[in-house]
Design a protein around this nucleic acid. Structure first.
Lengths: 221, 221, 221, 221
DNA sequence: CATGAATGAGAGTTCATTCAT
DNA sequence: TATGAATGAACTCTCATTCAT
């Protein structure tokens, strides 16, 4: 773990040689914090440990952030940006099924690739200020709503057949959010591999599709 | 004599009663604890609050359990039992696909229906003693291994087609474990509904199966 | 100072022999706290020092009071009681001048004789909760209003002659509140002596009354 | 040459300017500090807030003053000057009563009109260095001693009649020092009004003097 | 069996002060 | 002259745990 954070510490090392700007260090704090929050949970992650990881003193943290919660909020905000960016970039043409496949892939990528994304997905928002909690919940609601809308759309255009859009959307979001629990960066699975296989699993299920006649399948694409 | 005898047996009987009382209260503690742990998280759940909920004093808790961790361990153990029981009861005949469908339904049910099951699924095992953590991890590994084995079996018997059993199994486990985050007992969704729809989603995916010839489709169920 | 607090520590000493009740110890904490607050000021008085004085550990204080402010509030409340009791007991017959003399004596006594009274008189109420601050301010307002009313009454009945009841009342209250700065219990001046001389000074002023012919009065300036 | 000379003098001139600048800014710091100390109390007044008020950075304060205490000391010193000046200017002819009236008026004026004066009157000298504390205490002792001397003088020359010069002097000083608690500059009461009414109150008391027959005086006590 | 009372360790936070520049 | 950045010490408060009874 300490090793993982080494690059986050870089700015301080560099500082001794030449002064870097405040934002860079703030970002370094943020990166380490996100990492620590994910590892220990927000409450268990102590400012002392964070400071130790960054090789600075505890009060120095308070130079960059007013308090612990502000760090959490900043992690969430960064995560929201990451996720929204990827989600906005997802393809939105084709059938409902096509759309949801793209959407699931994008969201999975956001969660797999960025600590900040994982913070949004996994951390308890109970510690947040009312304002930021609203933002986070809005984002999550929006994600859920979009997925449901695509499912409904797919049902309407005949590309999707499920009994309940809500449960399906919960299942998918859950599987993706849970990635943070088992995924360790640098492991054998690449982000895009995970994203694509998750999408495939949700789209096609486990069952062999052997006998599906080609011409009926997915005529829109 | 009879009287004497009964008299002599009394302490023993009393012990049984007391024993039962103790067990009963231990269980009550456990139930409340599981609830609290799920609501607040293990670390945020304070012994004071647990005592307050149970309307006993704090030290009384220490009569029933040596310490906080022992309570957590007991919750996990109870959860393991619940899950294993349901998992053992799942049908294991038919194709690999049939088996995994039954397995997913059973695991989902365990997680949805019991606080203890949810404890195993959701609580961080980092707080556990090495011994119990091993047990928990073994269980989870076993669940994962079983799911993978069924998937492989399905691939072998032609009922399943996925590129990677491991990722598929992670996705399913994640979706199920995540249920604890959004599921509130007493809501509009029944446990069996959730379980069955989860199973269906994973088996068939979102995509419409329109042209699948009847005789190939899941004749076992 | 430590010596002064020795009787406040008594309950703990006695505790080792025989258990006393919670209220007694709460009171002991309060007494020591009032003393310390007066000596150092509320903010400078640390919980550590308070604990040290009482020969208990810091967290033990939190068994008796939820937090530091609650201790302050309790001091204020005790002080309010002391002052109101003495004020209510003050004679209220005769002329306005008679009444204010009695009132000043009573208030002075309250401030001189009790640490709690001095707390109300001297401590900054800025640290209080809104609720208690209201109470304290109401008390002070009431005291001021009563004094002014008596002065007006005296002016009306011819016993008092001052240009401004407000300034006179401020001057008297100030002189009394300030006692806490210089008065040290156990000194050469008794509480009743101070109270009576204060009252006399305000009633009669410094000027000799004996032989002053009416028409000569104030000729010096 | 002239040019050269002026050039040569430049540094010197610049120094004078800079010196004046420094003194000016030091004074500005002092003024703000006095204000802040009076508002919050010395300890609660933080260097950060002082810097913010002055729109300079925190370390800049340390250019003008070695540390926080030195600022306090300077405030006290300025206050001592203010008070001594006014006190020295007070009339010292006539009876003891005349003198004390003038003295009280002068001291009141000093406290009402100047933040620095109020600092001396109100701030706790416990934070001062031994040296400055001595100075402050000497000043206060001198004020007290002077008041007592005037009272004794008045007693001797028959213009004053009080049982105890010490208590009377404490009462007067207290009433005046307390002014800082309630007086807000810009309020309805002018400084001279307050000063004159305070003096009158202490000199004449509340009691109506006009019709008091000589033989009835003080019969109540 | 159960409790009132207490503790040690550690949390987040603030602040006067000081480097290096 | 003046600053951005950092620190050490101190503070209030919380919590799992444990005596003595």
């Amino acid at each position: 773990m300490t090793k993982d954070l080494s690059h986050a510490r870089e700015p301080w090392k560099a500082f001794q040689v030449r002064q870097r700007n405040l934002d860079e260090k703030r970002d370094a704090v943020l990166l380490s914090a996100a990492h620590l929050f994910l590892e220990r949970g927000y409450r268990q992650a102590s400012m002392s440990e964070l400071a130790r990881l960054l090789k600075i003193t505890k009060p120095a943290l308070y130079y960059y952030f007013r308090n612990k919660e502000e760090i959490l909020v900043a992690c969430y905000k960064a995560g929201i940006t990451v996720i929204e960016t990827l989600l906005d970039g997802a393809a939105t043409h084709g059938t409902g099924l096509d759309k949801i496949r793209a959407y699931v892939e994008a969201y999975t990528t956001a969660v797999v690739m960025h600590d900040f994304g994982r913070c949004v997905a996994m951390l308890d928002d109970a510690e947040l200020s009312t304002r930021t909690r609203q933002q986070v919940r809005n984002l999550k609601r929006k994600i859920d709503a979009t997925m449901r809308a695509y499912i409904e759309e797919g049902i309407a255009d005949g590309s999707i057949a499920v009994p309940d859009a809500k449960i399906a959307s919960f299942a998918m979001a859950g599987a993706i959010n849970w990635i943070g629990i088992w995924y360790k960066p640098g492991g054998p699975l690449s982000a895009s591999e995970i994203a694509s296989q998750f999408a495939t699993l949700f789209v096609d299920g486990l069952r062999t599709r052997a006998a599906v006649p080609v011409r009926q399948q997915n005529s829109a694409r």
